[in-house]
C-alpha cells in the first residue's frame, strides 16, 4: 500500500475519455491512472459512469474521444476484434451478476478459457484451478454446478475464473451489489487478500469502508467526470468538495467515523 506512485509505471492510463450512447453523454472526459500493483476504487453516485469506465478499459465499449493505454496497448485505437481479444486475455473481469457458465462445473468454468484460448495443457490448468479454488476457499466445490452454489460462492468462483488467465489487471464491477448482506464479507475477504498480494485492480464499489481499507487511491466520479482521485484518507476526511462529503456522509457508519475523527 505504498504511496510512491510516482516511481512506478502506470499500468492503466486514461486521458480525457469521452463516450456517448446516442444522445446520452456518459463519460465527459475521464482521467485516471493506475500504477502497477495498485488497487484503485471508483466510487460515486449511481449512473455516474463507473461501470462504463471499466468497459472502456477492456474494449467492450468504444469511446468517441480520448486516449486509453493499458499495459502499453492503446485500447482506443484497436480496430479489429482480434486485437481486442488479445487485450481481454490480459484483463480479468468480475461482474456484479457473477455470469458463471451454468452448463459447466466450477472446475470447467475456471479451466475453459486457459485450455481453449491460451492452450494450456488441461492437467496444468486444472492444477492451477484447484489452487485458485483453495485460495477462494471453495476447494470442496470443484465438481459443483453454479446453480448449486450460493451467490457468495458463485462470486468467489467468478474471481477464481478471472485469475485463471493470470491477468495483469482485474476489474471488479460492483461485485457485492447483488449479494445478500451476509455473503458480502466472504467475497470482500478474498479480494482483500488478492490486493495485499499485489494484484493490480480497479474496483467499482459501494462498500465505502472496504474501499478505504484496501485502496491505494480512490476516484470519485460524478456526472461522467472524475472529480477527485486521491489516497483514501485524503479523499474521505480532508476533501473540501461538498459533493464528496455529502456522498460519503450519506453512508451510515461513515458519518460516525468521520465525526469521531474530526471530534465533532
Amino acid at each position: 500500500m505504498a504511496q510512491d506512485f510516482a516511481n512506478r509505471p502506470n499500468l492503466v492510463d486514461l486521458q480525457d475519455v469521452h463516450l456517448s450512447f446516442g444522445e446520452v453523454e456518459v463519460l465527459k472526459g475521464i482521467d485516471l491512472t493506475v500504477a502497477k500493483g495498485d488497487a484503485v476504487s471508483i466510487i460515486g453516485p449511481s449512473g455516474s459512469g463507473k461501470s462504463t469506465i471499466l468497459r472502456c478499459i477492456n474494449g467492450l465499449a468504444q469511446p468517441q474521444a480520448g486516449r486509453i493505454t493499458v499495459a502499453g496497448v492503446r485500447v482506443d485505437t484497436l480496430r479489429s476484434e482480434a486485437e481486442r481479444i488479445a487485450l481481454r486475455k490480459r484483463i480479468g473481469v468480475v461482474f456484479q451478476q457473477y455470469n458463471l457458465f451454468p452448463h459447466l462445473t466450477v472446475l470447467e468454468n475456471i479451466t475453459l478459457a486457459p485450455v481453449r484460448i491460451l492452450k494450456v495443457p488441461r492437467a496444468e490448468a486444472e492444477g492451477h484451478a484447484r489452487d485458485l479454488l483453495a485460495r477462494v476457499r471453495l476447494a470442496d466445490k470443484v465438481l459443483a454446478y453454479p446453480g448449486e452454489l450460493s451467490g457468495g460462492q458463485q462470486q468467489r468462483v467468478a474471481i477464481a475464473r478471472a485469475l485463471a488467465m493470470r491477468p495483469e489487471l482485474v476489474l471488479f464491477d460492483e461485485v457485492t451489489s447483488a449479494l445478500d448482506p451476509e455473503m458480502v464479507g466472504e467475497v470482500l475477504a478474498v479480494i482483500r487478500e488478492l490486493v495485499r498480494e499485489g494484484l493490480t485492480s480497479i474496483l467499482v464499489t459501494h462498500e465505502m469502508r472496504f474501499a478505504e481499507e484496501i485502496s491505494d487511491t480512490i476516484a470519485f466520479t460524478e456526472n461522467g467526470r472524475i472529480v477527485a482521485q486521491a489516497p483514501p484518507a485524503e479523499l474521505f476526511y480532508r476533501s473540501d468538495n461538498p459533493r464528496i462529503r455529502q456522498f460519503i456522509g450519506g453512508f451510515q457508519g461513515f458519518r460516525d467515523a468521520v465525526q469521531d475523527r474530526e471530534g465533532i
Binding site: L60, V93, Q97, N99, F101, P102, R116, I117, M165
Partner: peptide
C-alpha cells in the same frame, strides 16, 4: 451478460 462475460474473458 453471460455473452459479455465470455467476451471479457477473450473468447
Amino acid at each position: 451478460p453471460l455473452v459479455e462475460a465470455a467476451q471479457a474473458t477473450g473468447f
